[in-house]
């Protein structure tokens, strides 16, 4: 039981981290909380389903195209909805909340209420250490999720674009004085945040089929991870996601399966009591 709960905790934790990265990036750079994050995750799942299942495209191409389409949609949302609200965080919060409701209802109208699942990449299950069976699709999702997380770290920590992102998130005015076009950076960052939600969506849709409202718990968990790890911290997302995944599964294994998600909130409250800015968050000056 311990081995399976730990392994499942790590897999689910990595999935949580991946879903939270996009939220963290947008909060860190733009100070915008995207309430429609979960619906963009679902949108990518639907795109992937249509392209791979209905149109018969290869699943890798379908996933890449789905992420690209959501990236473009994110840029469109930033340009039309978010940009006019800069300077007032509350407006962007309300607008993305409305967008989430509109998207949920649009999905219901277009795709119907039933769950949709793009084709899996691999079938069957692996007998891990001779102790338990674990779904191969989940293992593949873990690997794909780890690759995307590594890509984001390299992008942010090792590239010129990442240096601009970090500079702007630390001091926007100083970055502007040094010639950074922060308007364009906002647009690209928001698009990237949406693309990360989409990456999580296309990786997980073959494991957890998408429905019009399935994005709500995804977004809620992503927000918990971001707050737990510290607003805007990429390491915070990874550590926060893994902690949640492990606590949830070990709690379900040894205390009760009926309160799986309650354990998350207990951990969140305990951490915030000791570190109000989250595990890796910076204290406000």
């Amino acid at each position: 039981m311990l081995a399976l709960a730990t392994m499942n905790g790590l897999v689910i934790g990595a999935i949580y981290a991946l879903a939270a990265l996009g939220v963290s990036l947008v909060v860190g750079i733009m100070n915008v909380i995207n309430f429609a994050h979960g619906e963009l995750y679902i949108l990518a799942g639907y795109f992937s389903y249509i392209l791979a299942d209905t149109l018969g495209m290869h699943f890798v191409l379908a996933m890449v195209l789905a992420v690209a389409l959501v990236f473009l949609f994110g840029i469109f949302v930033e340009y039309t909805l978010i940009r006019p609200t800069y300077g007032n965080d509350m407006y962007s919060l309300i607008l993305t909340f409305i967008l989430s409701i509109v998207l949920q209802n649009a999905y219901l109208l277009i795709f119907g209420p039933y769950p949709n699942k793009p084709p899996g990449w691999v079938g069957g299950a692996t007998h891990v250490f001779g102790a338990f069976y674990y779904g191969n699709q989940r293992l593949a999702a873990l690997v794909a999720g780890a690759v995307v997380i590594a890509f984001v770290f390299v992008l942010v920590k090792k590239t010129w674009f990442g240096r601009i992102i970090r500079a702007t998130s630390q001091d926007r005015e100083m970055a502007e004085l040094n010639g950074v076009n922060t308007t364009r950076l906002n647009m690209l960052s928001f698009g990237l945040g949406c693309a990360l939600a989409a990456a999580a969506g296309v990786i997980l849709a073959p494991v957890f089929p998408v429905t019009p409202t399935a994005g709500v718990p995804v977004a809620l968990t992503a927000f918990v991870v971001v707050v737990l790890g510290g607003m805007g911290s990429l390491w915070g997302c990874v550590v926060g996601g893994l902690i949640l995944g492990l606590v949830e599964n070990l709690g379900a294994a040894y205390i009760s399966t009926g309160y799986k998600h309650v354990f998350n909130f207990i951990i969140l409250i305990l951490v915030l009591l000791v570190r109000p800015a989250g595990l890796f968050g910076r204290r406000e000056a």
Binding site: M1, A5, F132, P217, N249, T257, Y259, K260
Partner: peptide
């Protein structure tokens, strides 16, 4: 007997208890 959460997507822990 065990209880699972209505919103839960992942049932691996529940299923391992049932299998045991």
């Amino acid at each position: 007997f065990l209880v699972t959460e209505r919103q839960s997507q992942d049932h691996y822990t529940e299923l391992s208890k049932i299998k045991a």
